[in-house]
Design a protein around this nucleic acid. Structure first.
Lengths: 130, 130, 130, 130
DNA sequence: GTGGTCTAGACCACA
DNA sequence: GTGGTCTAGACCACA
């Protein structure tokens, strides 16, 4: 379930966008699947429905979901969102490395970081599937 | 010179902090060196001097600069800023990788990204210092 | 066959009205001809029969179709629909030109547009009837 | 001044978008010029500031305006908006003609419509500049 | 039921 | 001052 950080500098509607993208990325939400209704999700998350609406309309602008008025909001059926997400992720990591070059990180620093992160990830994967 | 993005969601004072850190990281600003005067810099950047003031206060709180009343603001002499910056940079890259795991990037993707970025960087270094 | 755009801001019932008018205009539906039954059409289009009902009622109010209880809905026999449609079409084009005057289009722009559209149309007519 | 039709099916925020585009098209609003403040405009129009905000953020998404948080919203400086608007207008007229082909309009009908509209326009131009 | 729009009003960060 | 976000609540059209 969608957990929000109400204290964060990141606006709630943006957190919702991110979480839905994640859900799609990990296959929790499939192509064409119906998202919860705006007001139902709002109630569930204890926030106002306008905030959900804002999140959904941002996702719609990105062609990640599509809305059929009166019926609901659905994960886009179009092209493979997972492929797009992975590309964006790789770009984000590239940008991050590039931005930090100036601070003296080396290729080896990045490799070490990658190894550390992926080692942790393996452990998590191996461990608790509840 | 310091170029700001007024449209960015990142507050201007924070952008200024970042740029000054970069300047220190690349050696453009040395230990103990005097920063531009608040009002002069404000005029140069076409922004309000309170915004510069805010940036400097933040840097001071991080012990990156120190202000001597009536004399000016100076790059801190005491700590090895470059070491700190590099640590922070490595942490940033780690965090970025971790955040993007969910979108399906692999260890190999990160290595490829790193290779690409560092290859470009070498070329730039070797090439045009204007 | 009738293709609907569920994402459009134009209500589905209105899209259905438009499509039926088009069918009459191009002679696909003739004076006095029976329209598909409400429930059959609804099933075919995968939408609720109330939506079809609403479309038909609108067409009836415009005297474009008439419903005979227990028999079905028929294209109106009484008036010359094609003449009406053509008048409405001319009005629509006039309105569109007028609305766009403000954006700097010239009489010549309209003529060029018309020539382009009609040239394409001739080609289509001349070419493939599949 | 911006006159709204509160009864219209077109949402208020969209009417505002349209009016601002028109103002730019006719040169009432110049490149780089500051728009009224969100809350000031809301008060002037007697509507809620959220509605203005929605309009402005739509315009921003279209790169027609740019917002500098804390400073205001400005007509985009970028490429020539008037050229873009004219192109869009020509496209709109083309689409409209094409859509109405089916209803039997002829090339001559379009020319007549154009002549009528532009004749009226000349008269208006010649007449009342208040 | 479902989304879309809108208001009134609040609080916040930034310039 | 200026924009950004959010809530509570209302009304609407459509399916």
């Amino acid at each position: 379930m969608l957990i929000l950080n109400l204290q964060s500098r990141i606006p709630i509607y943006e957190q919702i966008c991110d979480k839905i993208k994640e859900s799609i990325a990990i296959g929790e939400l499939q192509k064409g699947q119906k998202l919860p209704a705006v007001r139902a999700l709002a109630k569930e998350l204890g926030i106002n429905h306008n905030t959900i609406q804002k999140a959904f309309s941002h996702l719609e602008r990105e062609n990640i979901v599509m809305t059929i008025s009166g019926k609901g909001t659905f994960v886009s059926e179009q092209i493979d969102l997972k492929v797009i997400f992975r590309k964006q992720a790789i770009q984000a990591v590239s940008d991050c490395i590039e931005k930090n070059l100036i601070y003296g990180i080396s290729r080896q620093d990045v490799l070490n970081a990658a190894d550390r992160v992926f080692a942790q990830y393996q452990n998590k994967e191996a461990g608790g599937h509840d």
